[in-house]
Computed example of a mutant assay.
Amino acid sequence: MLEVERPVTWVALTGFMGVGKSHIGRELARALLLHFIDLDRYIERQMGLSVADIFRHLGEATFRQLEAEAVAELVQKDFLVLSLGGGTFVNPENRMRLLQRGPVVALWASPQTILERISRRPGQRPILDAPDPFERIQKLYAEREGIYHQAPLHVSTDGRRPGEVVEEIIQQLWTHAKASD
């Protein structure tokens, strides 16, 4: 069997919505020759409903329960890059499971960049259904920032090409792997 040299066989990406977790996750999985799962898309496939419809018809509490069940399942897998939803890491139980499985990489972008990115796909972010989405982003960002800082690795996506971000993540994963030996 072909042995592939890679720093990890499992990694999760966390961070606020719009920081690039899904796009970067796909590229990272390709670079590391791992499977890629976007947690929100995984839940949508299992439920046969979009995240927006789950929020709208079943409520956020139901979505968060489905999310926790999916995390519990996916931390058991190997050869995986897992892109989390923006609120997944906020749940203490999810955070504990993910950090124990690790490593977890927090991706960062400024609230202005986040607003620009999510404005390209209106209606896709039910948690931002608010009169002033930028104010809502700033409030949620401030609430979640300290939690995202609990991830051991951190990479900014602001003004950077995906390839650059992926390279930095891989470098940090090698450093992390060597420090863990």
Score class of each variant (00 low, 15 high):
Tyr42Pro: 04
Gly18Gln: 05
Lys139Ile: 06
Asp78Phe: 00
His57Ile: 06
Ala106Trp: 09
Ala109Cys: 06
Pro103Gln: 07
Gln171Met: 06
Leu13Tyr: 06
Gly163Cys: 05
Val105Asp: 10
His149Phe: 01
Trp10Asp: 13
Gly25Cys: 01
Leu80Lys: 03
Trp174Gln: 09
Pro122Ala: 04
Thr175Met: 03
Gly102Trp: 00
Pro7Glu: 07
Val8Gly: 07
Pro162Ala: 05
Ala177Val: 09
Leu128Met: 14
Arg161Asn: 15
Thr175Leu: 11
Lys77Trp: 07
Thr113Gln: 14
Phe16Arg: 05
Phe55Asp: 13
Ile127Pro: 13
Val4Leu: 14
Pro152Gly: 15
Thr175Asp: 12
Ile127Val: 14
Leu98Gly: 07
Glu3Asp: 15
Ile127Cys: 05
Phe134Thr: 02
Arg64Gly: 13
Lys178Glu: 15
Ser22Ala: 05
Ile118Thr: 14
Gly163Ala: 09
Met96Leu: 14
Glu3Met: 11
Gln112Val: 14
Leu28His: 05
Lys77Pro: 01
Glu44Asn: 04
Leu115Gln: 08
Ala12Gly: 14
Lys178Pro: 00
Leu82Asp: 08
Pro162Phe: 02
Ala72His: 12
Ser83Ile: 02
Leu80His: 11
Leu33Pro: 10
Gly123Trp: 07
Asp181Trp: 08
Pro92Thr: 08
Pro122Val: 05
Pro162His: 03
Trp10Phe: 14
Ala52Asn: 06
Gly18Ile: 00
Val8Arg: 07
Thr62Ala: 15
Gln46Ser: 12
Val75Arg: 08
Val165Ala: 06
Glu69Ile: 04
Ser83His: 04
Leu173Arg: 09
Glu93Asp: 11
Val81Phe: 02
Ala70Thr: 12
Leu28Val: 04
Thr157Val: 01
Pro111Thr: 13
Arg120Trp: 01
Gly59Thr: 09
Thr113Lys: 11
Arg97His: 10
Gly87Ser: 01
Gly85Asp: 02
Glu164Asn: 03
Ser83Met: 02
Leu107Cys: 07
Val75Pro: 09
Gln172Gly: 07
Gln138His: 10
Tyr148Leu: 02
Gln112Asn: 10
Phe16Gln: 11
Arg136Ile: 10
Leu98Thr: 06
Val19Leu: 04
His57Glu: 15
Asp158Lys: 03
Pro122Cys: 01
Ala70Asp: 12
Glu145Gln: 15
Ile137Tyr: 05
Leu32Thr: 05
Tyr148Lys: 12
Arg160Gln: 14
Pro162Lys: 03
Pro103Asp: 05
Ala179Lys: 15
Arg160Thr: 08
Arg6Ile: 08
Arg56Val: 04
Gly146His: 13
Thr88Glu: 05
Asp129Trp: 11
Gln138Ser: 14
Trp10Glu: 12
Ile118Ser: 11
Val165Gln: 02
Asn91Gly: 09
Val71Leu: 01
Pro133Asp: 08
Arg117Ile: 08
Leu84Thr: 10
Gln46Val: 02
